[in-house]
Amino acid sequence: MSDPILRLSGIEKVYKRGKPGEVQVLRGASLSIARGEVVALVAPSGAGKSTLLHIAGLLDQPDAGTVEIGGEAMQDRSDRRRTAVRRADVGFVYQFHHLLPEFTALENIVLPQLANGASRAEAEARAKGLLDSVGLSDRADHRPAALSGGEQQRVAFCRAMANAPRLLLADEPTGNLDPETSERVFAVLLDLVRDTGLSAVIATHNLELAARMDRRVRLEAGKLHPV
């Protein structure tokens, strides 16, 4: 695979769990994601998919192995550089929306842009465009508590896209929704990803949703295998 946006090579992660000893969650996991590719990460609960996504998104460090984003090896970079790359190049979506409750939908999308150096006018214009793209223009001034679960998660998608990342990492992004809403919200996410041409790794238990992505990999016994 030429010029991948994300390359994980030989990733290992061990957690110390007190007296019983260590638990090795990742055992040499390797994965390359091409630019514009959407990959489904399938794994049973407790297999380590959240750990893998955190390492891929520079939220955690592996005990061994390398992480490259856009061809840049990140394991020896300073915390400042890792934070800068994460803020500019990586977007995260979780099972729970984690929106800031005291801010409106629009403000939740504006804030990460301001933190990344955008002007207020630029940030608001992009936020409004993103909300429009997911059908929520009329909900811009609503706080999260006034939104439905599906609307909250669509706002979370927009927030993840706020700084125009090159890589989206989503951890069970529709896992907290009922099946009908999950299907509708997932379609919005997939359209958003396709329209912007970014790369994505989307963890899901839903094999029907996984089948709609470009490729599927399974995390099992600490390693990644093609499905």
Results as ranks from 00 to 15, higher is better:
Ala118Met: 14
Glu151Pro: 06
Ala164Glu: 14
Arg139Leu: 06
Leu168Asp: 01
Phe186Arg: 08
Glu183Val: 08
Ser133Trp: 06
Ser148Arg: 10
Ser199Ile: 07
Val134Thr: 04
Ala200Met: 03
Pro165Ile: 06
Pro173His: 03
Val201His: 00
Val134Leu: 05
Leu190His: 13
Phe96Pro: 06
Pro144Met: 08
Lys128Asp: 08
Leu136Asp: 01
Arg120Glu: 13
Asp138Lys: 03
Val185Ser: 09
Asp132Arg: 10
Ser182Ile: 06
Leu106Asp: 06
Pro179Trp: 05
Tyr94Gln: 14
Ser148Pro: 05
Ala145Gln: 14
Leu198Thr: 01
Leu114Pro: 04
Gln95Cys: 04
Lys128Cys: 08
Ser133Val: 12
Glu102Tyr: 12
Gly149Tyr: 11
Gln152Val: 09
Leu190Ala: 14
Arg139Val: 09
Arg194Gln: 13
Glu124Tyr: 05
Phe157Trp: 08
Gly149Ser: 03
Asp141Leu: 09
Val110Trp: 08
Ala127Ser: 12
Ile109Val: 15
Leu192Gly: 06
Leu114His: 03
Leu168Ala: 06
Asp178Pro: 07
Leu190Gln: 14
Pro165Leu: 08
Leu114Gln: 04
Glu122Trp: 05
Val185Phe: 09
Ala160Thr: 06
Glu151Ser: 00
Leu99Ser: 00
Glu180Pro: 01
Ser182Leu: 04
Ala140Phe: 00
Ser182Glu: 12
Asp89Met: 08
Glu183Met: 03
Ser119Asp: 12
Ser137Asp: 08
Val193Asp: 00
Asp141Lys: 11
Lys128Tyr: 07
Glu180Asn: 15
Asn108Thr: 11
Leu100Tyr: 11
Asn163Gln: 07
Leu100Glu: 13
Pro165Cys: 13
Leu136Ala: 02
Val90Lys: 10
Thr196His: 14
Met161Leu: 15
Ala125Lys: 15
Ala164Gly: 03
Phe186Asp: 11
Leu177Tyr: 12
Glu124Gln: 14
Leu111Gln: 06
Ser199Trp: 01
Gly175Arg: 07
Glu180Gln: 15
Gly117Pro: 04
Leu100Gln: 12
Gly117Glu: 07
Cys158Asp: 00
Gly135Cys: 04
Leu177Phe: 02
His97Lys: 00
Ser133Arg: 12
Asn116Ala: 15
Gly117Ser: 12
Ile109Asn: 02
Asn108Leu: 11
Glu107Phe: 07
Asp138Glu: 13
Asp132Gln: 14
Leu168Glu: 00
Gly149Val: 07
Ala123Asn: 02
Ala170Tyr: 12
Ala140Tyr: 01
Asn108Met: 05
Phe186Gly: 14
Val185Ile: 14
Phe186Thr: 13
Arg154Met: 06
Ala146Tyr: 08
Ala115Glu: 03
Leu130Cys: 00
Glu183Ile: 07
Leu167Tyr: 06
Ala162Val: 13
Ala146Cys: 03
Glu183Gly: 10
